[in-house]
Nucleic acid binder design. Structure first.
Ligand SMILES: NC(=O)c1ccc[n+]([C@@H]2O[C@H](COP(=O)([O-])OP(=O)(O)OC[C@H]3O[C@@H](n4cnc5c(N)ncnc54)[C@H](O)[C@@H]3O)[C@@H](O)[C@H]2O)c1
Ligand SMILES: NC(=O)c1ccc[n+]([C@@H]2O[C@H](COP(=O)([O-])OP(=O)(O)OC[C@H]3O[C@@H](n4cnc5c(N)ncnc54)[C@H](O)[C@@H]3O)[C@@H](O)[C@H]2O)c1
Lengths: 234, 234
DNA sequence: GTAGATTCAGTATATGGTTATCGATATGAA
DNA sequence: TTCATATCGATAACCATATACTGAATCTAC
């Protein structure tokens, strides 16, 4: 199983396919992309790592390193073509090709994701939702059909869906993952805070908001608990 | 500004307060917590790093390292007391104290967060929402009042709110952050995919779903693009 | 056209986090 | 009690990533 929990919980037991780009760099690319799209909208044609670094609070060298992984080549003194750079990043990330996805768990979070049209700009197309709640099966949310869960495996197979999104309660996530695997889904974006047991070839990407919350609340707690001078010294 | 973008975009220009615990370890703690709560519910009283590692797909040594940061002390041969460990993690993360928060942007994502009661288990209490849309100001979402944005600064000050959550469109995020700072808010959980400019002492934690999506779609793209043998070799 | 400044690419070093090793200690069986 | 085993805590080695350095390329200004 290719686990990647927010960069931090990649299974150290086995690393079958070490990435050709560091995870941190990979995760910075969308930042650059967003920034570059802004630049392009402003009519700016070329940009250097120094400029990007200044605007995004990163050291220029790191920016250059990150961009190098995408294969872009820049010109000394002038930097990179903004348009070319955007395209290179999009190609590198596979944002030019559409990934059709099924979402399971049409609750609070699921509804939010279903309603997020911008995902389509980044190659993500949620084509249908599934829910075990009979009240929800049959309704439409943000123009997407909500179907009963037992239809998933068959449909995924017939529609060649490769990506599954889990936004159901943690206790049901494993069952849902099993169903997805049965349907031939290759990758799972898991918003439930549990470790999924899936076959080795399945890509699992855990999106754990509690991890973030932990980081945030720790910092906040430290701020109000620890005296200033001690905080600086740590 | 203490920037932490998903572990990966911490500003390298200045590191005023290096953490006494590595970010990855910090982000793993909620995992352990979740797992331990399960164990406790099953009536299991003691647990070792080996067991945790086996169940969570981590090497035991890493588990031990992570737990050591919290200050817990275990007993050789038997491991740690589950209850004590849970309490230690909660205390370490500040989950015992309540963080009251304001949320700005009562749209898709904002509504999902407002409806997530489990946050209260982890010390996060969203007490009110704000929205610039006059249609939304005045209504209630998940039992939380939605107020006009211009009330934020004053209310934050009077209620001593220290945490702000931004779930508004990217283009308005900066304005909202400014307003939060004006209201004396100390930390911002930012779901909009932009870099915020705030004073140095403000903690900013960016939650960038697009980063995750990038990581996921890159892996997926690579899987379908790159031949197997090449993939293994990288 | 040349000097100087800037930035790129490639290589090297430093840092921080992960993994391994070692001795110490608690438990349970002989 | 004594021995075998599992696990802890601390220290050390290792690896991935971040940062620094070097030389070449390009532009601007004179
Ligand atoms: N909402 C948030 O802000 C938030 C924050 C952090 C984490 N999460 C996580 O996201 C997940 C979903 O959260 P939510 O707030 O949307 O919950 P929710 O209760 O609003 O929605 C869950 C949905 O999943 C459906 N469901 C339950 N079991 C199912 C099954 N076996 N198959 C298909 N559908 C099933 C339910 O009918 C419901 O519609 C949870 O795991 C939660 O921990 C949510
Ligand atoms: N919904 C998702 O699944 C998702 C996924 C990834 C990222 N995001 C990000 O989260 C943010 C919100 O997304 P969303 O889907 O909830 O958008 P949304 O359009 O549904 O909601 C945005 C809300 O913010 C309000 N708003 C706009 N300007 C405001 C201002 N100046 N002050 C206060 N409120 C204001 C709007 O009235 C609206 O209610 C965006 O930045 C988006 O990029 C959302």
């Amino acid at each position: 199983m290719v686990i990647d929990m927010n960069l931090s919980i990649e299974s150290p037991l086995k690393r079958p396919d070490a990435p050709s780009i560091p995870q941190p760099s990979l995760r910075r690319l969308p930042q650059y992309h967003h920034y570059l799209v802004d630049l392009e909208a402003k009519g700016i044609g070329r940009v250097s790592c120094s400029t990007i670094g200044r605007d995004l609070n990163l050291v220029p060298i790191q920016v250059r390193k990150d961009l190098q992984y995408t294969g872009i080549i820049g010109k000394p003194k002038t930097g990179y073509s903004v348009t070319e750079l955007i395209l290179t990043i999009e190609t590198f990330l596979g944002w030019n090709n559409v990934n059709e996805a099924f979402l399971v768990g049409a609750g609070n979070l699921g509804t939010a994701l279903l309603g997020h049209e911008r995902f389509s700009k980044f190659g993500l197309q949620i084509v249908a939702a599934f829910d075990s709640d009979p009240q929800k099966a049959g309704i439409w949310i943000h123009n997407k059909a909500v179907l009963p869960l037992d239809k998933l495996a068959d449909l995924a197979q017939r529609m060649s869906i490769h990506l599954g999104i889990i936004t159901a309660p943690a206790e049901n996530a494993q069952t849902i993952a099993d169903e997805m695997v049965k349907g031939g889904i290759q990758a799972i974006w898991n918003f439930a805070p549990v470790k999924l047991n899936v076959p080795a070839h399945i890509i699992v990407h855990n999106e754990d908001l509690y991890s973030s919350l932990a980081s945030l609340s720790w910092k906040l707690a430290r701020r109000f608990r620890v005296p200033i001078q001690e905080r600086e010294a740590v």
